[in-house]
Design a protein around this nucleic acid. Structure first.
Lengths: 247, 247
DNA sequence: CGCCATGTTGATTTCTATCAAATTGAGTGG
DNA sequence: CCACTCAATTTGATAGAAATCAACATGGCG
């Protein structure tokens, strides 16, 4: 859609060295992480005809809770926050979508959460109606969708334990370990730097804490020489400390 | 399998007037609520050959976290608690399975949570290997499975908001409203009595609270004439109060 | 250089957990 | 039928973790 999506400056902002899909699914940097890993060359061809690259600025809204699901997205580069809001303004961030993650797994008519770009974003976009037909015509794509949904469900249950039963310190440690694992999977190796492109408020809303508590706990961890805070993220100093605390 | 499953005393204990599957899926009391609603007469026949009624006593363990998934279950009568435990004994109840609910939607090799009977229980049991083949041979069964998983995912996100952002009072109100809705769907009408077959500790572990807080909040609601506590459940007095507080 | 959003730090409050004890109630056996 | 037992629940007193309220610092950007 927008060829600037492939420019390296976008990728740098997105906190991810992966290329966007560009014009050819076969060269897609996130294919091995995404729903597309299930597809053979022929299916990939079909899918490519339906796909368009879509670029969003930081803070852009991809869709809002209650909106009709007219498109589904495969994140190519950048980070998205998924938000459920209460009428009085309280927010729960139910997850962060990273490169390779898919938005629209549920095939329901309306979104049940909002999605906002945390960083500049590139996403592979499909019209929902086309995508649904594609799924129903390819049983093993449907199965892969179901596997993704099952995986999401497990992650959601992990997160319930975190929200319901962990202390603030354990929540932060679990979050940092989770981010380290997810970036490692994307990069293909354990990164020295744990990138945290989302702000403190987003982390707080993800962990069921306040921004002050998030700030205090992370800064206390630095004072205790468990990590160092660096621009755009943190670096673990005492790996064991985190592995012991994390869920 | 065990014909005593259909005796009325079991059903009374199970807190549900529904009949078990018995020998014939066509007469199953929870069919319209369950995965089986998607099946035509022929598929129902195939499924019936794979099914066996399975009875559990109160407190019986259906399976534990990490166990191989050798069977999947469709709850016919009674209530199950789904539990994730931390090494130090902290527990999070991730959900309660009621009649019509399916355990084993994810088709992974190992369970990610434990399941224990809260009441005497009747479940329709399938060997996992058979069931998986059945799903893959019937694309619209796979689709129905995926719809169930998507629905679970939405419920999980609702629960994240509850755990992360609601006060104790709001959590209790939301829980009671949730139980009222779920029993209403099963009974086919709004019940006067909201059945709570699970103990206070289970409710606490579901809501991320302590047993003392659950007890205090419910009893305070009674003192404030918002509800009355009755054997096996509660009865709403001030419906508006709950609708206003609930998520 | 100064503005505004974001993040940090400090003081205090509040909600819920914790610790402790009393009460209820279902099931058991005399 | 009633006393007894044990688990579940309720209630009370206190402690503690995180929220709230309030400045203050930082840092990117026009």
């Amino acid at each position: 859609m927008d060829s600037s999506a492939r420019h390296s400056d976008h990728e740098a902002h997105a906190g991810c060295a992966l290329r966007s899909r560009g014009d050819d699914c076969r060269f897609c940097g996130v294919r091995h992480l995404s729903i597309c890993q299930a597809l053979d060359v022929d299916e990939l061809d079909q899918l490519e005809k339906m796909a368009s690259d879509s670029v969003f600025e930081e803070r852009a809204v991809l869709f809002r809770e209650e909106d009709q699901v007219s498109s589904v997205f495969n994140i190519t580069a950048g980070v998205v926050r998924l938000i459920r809001s209460l009428p009085d303004g309280r927010r729960q961030v139910t997850g962060f979508a990273l490169p390779g993650d898919f938005l629209g797994i549920s095939l329901e008519k309306a979104w049940r959460f909002s999605a906002e770009a945390v960083t500049p974003l590139v996403a592979c976009r499909f019209r929902r109606s086309n995508f649904e037909v594609f799924c129903e015509k390819n049983p093993h794509v449907m199965k892969k969708m179901h596997e993704f949904a099952s995986h999401e469900l497990n992650l959601a249950q992990d997160h319930m334990v975190l929200l319901g039963r962990l202390t603030a310190e354990e929540k932060i440690a679990s979050f940092l370990v989770e981010m380290r694992k997810r970036w490692a999977r994307i990069a293909g190796h354990e990164p020295g730097l744990i990138r945290l492109p989302m702000g403190r408020q987003d982390i707080a809303d993800y962990l069921g804490l306040t921004i002050e508590t998030v700030s205090r706990v992370i800064n206390q961890m630095q004072r205790d020489h468990k990590l160092v805070i660096v621009p755009d993220g943190v670096r673990f100093v005492d790996q064991n400390y985190f592995d012991d605390l994390a869920l």
